[in-house]
Design a binder for these strands. Structure first.
Lengths: 243, 243
DNA sequence: GAGTGGTCTAGACCACTTG
DNA sequence: AAGTGGTCTAGACCACTCC
């Protein structure tokens, strides 16, 4: 077993799932890479291919890997297709991401608030980066975003050509800092617009807006970025199926 | 194959999944019933047990059945544990449903609005039932609900002892009318409280409230009930994990 | 003890992708 | 043609539930 910490009381295919997940988290296979084939894995783990299949089915269900017949199994790159932000027309009706334009309004190194410290697990004395940006589609501002990062990990971001950070931040984190966003927690609530948000969204101060907080993590579960976004509540509707 | 309409181009285990799902929808096995065992199914369908396993795994993932080791496979009763309403403290922190008290304020047979007709697929001329109720926890009103039903299917509900409709409506639909709610679509948006809602929730008219619409379906996909609920936006927060 | 689902094996053949 | 994942089989043994 590649991961000796695996709990031997668990079924074999769970242990193997954990081991493969750990190897992905360790960077043995990066996003987009083809991992070893079923028969190779069966041999290295000394089990039947059917057992490898059970393990990789789990990984597929969790979205860690993608299986393509005839080609292999690939480490999936997070695409956040289920994000709450999709309800702000950040994608077409077909689900194609349409990537509205980003406008970065400010980048600065500042003292983190207690909230930021708690979310990013910053030690006392550690600095933070605060970015403000808007996301626009056509001539409409859809979102106002406040983005917080650890200065220790991302400090150089304030000196980087702004074009390097466009159009999307997560690929830039990966390209410039080697930090990969693997998953996130999002939280939706309703708030009233403060002066800054109101001005950005062209609503009256105090108007009702949708607030989405997102805490983004790497594969190992370390928090990388905390983001507070506000968008107009007008026309916002979130739909789910329940059983 | 029990369901001759199954597409023979599909993998065997998909055809079997469809067949078993159809048999459940047809009422061959009701909610809570134990369906045939894996080995029985394997024999009747003339396939290996492993193939039955693939099919029933699909049904398990979809939430149609529940597998219990040593006992069998059971038709799952929808519990709506993922409903948006759980964010109105309709359940404890552990996820235990805590069922706030229901107070039915009115029941009447009325002409459906176009909206109601469209949602419940009512033919022109068909009547509708409109119920209004509140859901309360302790001394707080959590939700104000407007509930629409087809008069053809549920007409007698206006004459039934109100205690028969408590504490929950869906079990009452099943007990009194033989209609089983199997799944639902929910839609969350933000609205301002009209006079009636404001009074019920003890907020000022025009205050911001969370609006949740729910369209509930039976196993066959027929709409049974349309519900428009309003609750205070204060403290409302919806959380998800995204990848 | 009989019957159920849960895990695991060791093969077979098919469909698909790539060189 | 070689290699991949997708489907399917036919068994084995285990863990659990119920009588």
């Amino acid at each position: 077993m590649k991961n000796p910490a695996a709990d031997r009381r668990l079924p074999l295919y769970h242990q193997i799932r954990d081991s493969i997940a750990a190897r992905i988290a360790d960077g043995e296979w990066g996003a987009g890479d083809c991992i070893a084939s079923e028969s190779q894995l069966a041999e290295t783990y000394g089990v039947a291919v059917g057992t490898i299949r059970r393990a990789t089915d789990l990984l597929g269900d969790e979205g860690l890997i993608e299986r393509v017949q005839g080609r292999g199994m690939f480490v999936r790159r997070a695409d956040f297709a289920n994000s709450l932000f999709r309800f702000f027309r950040l994608s077409t009706e077909n689900g194609q991401p349409l990537t509205p334009t980003s406008r970065i309004l400010s980048r600065e190194r500042v003292e983190p608030t207690d909230d930021v410290k708690a979310h990013l697990s910053l030690r006392s004395g550690e600095g933070a980066i605060r970015m403000v940006r808007t996301r626009e589609s056509g001539d409409r501002v859809l979102l106002h975003e406040e983005i917080w990062l650890s200065a220790k990990a991302f400090g150089a971001i304030v000196d980087i050509e702004i074009s390097e950070l466009l159009p999307l931040l997560y690929p830039a984190y990966e390209r410039l800092f080697g930090r990969v966003v693997a998953r996130a927690k999002e939280r939706l609530s309703v708030a009233s617009a403060n002066a800054v948000v109101a001005q950005a969204l062209s609503v009256t101060p105090g108007a009702i807006v949708i607030r989405i907080e997102r805490l983004a993590f790497d594969h190992a579960g370390n928090p990388l970025e905390w983001r507070i976004s506000h968008g107009s509540a007008d026309g916002f509707a979130y739909e789910i199926d329940v059983t």
